[in-house]
Simulated scan of single mutants.
Amino acid sequence: MPTDFNFSLIYGTYGKQKIDTFNDTIVKDLVEDGTIEVNLAFTEEEMEQVYHEMMTIDIMDDSKFTVREEEVCETEPPSYTIWNIQMDGKTNSFYTQTYCDGYPENVLELLKLEDYIHSILLNKDEYKALPDSNGYYE
């Protein structure tokens, strides 16, 4: 894993959730109660696991994760993901949204990665100690 490896991931309904390893912060969406931001760092081992998963899908390939606007659907409430990844002196940024006719394979890879990273977060004691979300989006 490169020494400069970091990422930020903004995701979920209205893009209100965030994992930012550049600043060791996370934002949890509490729905009706707003959001809460706290300092929370991933361990070296967790970062290595995420790095390995990213390399498995070749996440730094600039052309692989380009959104084709004609395939994107507007949904209410909107849900999207914004990625910003840094490694080996290079930065790659891209986003995904809801697709009209099913997700292309490359976007499915990103969704699986997002779920993987979120599952790491869900298992951290610091995250478990945060308030539960109140309500839901329709």
Rank of each mutant, 00 (worst) to 15 (best):
E70I: 13
F7E: 06
V72W: 00
A129Q: 13
K112P: 08
S63V: 09
A129T: 01
D4N: 07
E37Y: 04
N84T: 08
D58L: 05
F42P: 03
K128R: 10
L110V: 13
S79G: 11
K64N: 01
Y116H: 06
N6D: 12
Y80F: 15
D132P: 08
H52V: 07
E70N: 12
K28F: 01
S119T: 10
E70R: 06
V72E: 00
Q86E: 12
E48W: 06
M1H: 11
P104R: 02
E37N: 03
T56C: 10
E126D: 15
S8E: 09
N134S: 15
L130A: 00
V38N: 09
T91P: 11
T21H: 08
T13W: 01
K18H: 12
V31W: 02
G12K: 01
Y99L: 10
F94P: 00
H52G: 06
L108C: 15
D58E: 12
M47Y: 11
F65S: 05
T98G: 04
F5N: 00
Y137T: 09
E32C: 02
V72T: 05
L113Q: 10
M47P: 04
G89W: 05
E126V: 03
K64I: 08
D24R: 01
E53F: 06
V38T: 10
Y127F: 07
G15H: 04
E46I: 03
F5L: 04
L110P: 12
Y136C: 07
Y14S: 04
P131C: 09
Y51A: 09
W83E: 09
I36W: 08
A129K: 14
N84C: 09
S133K: 15
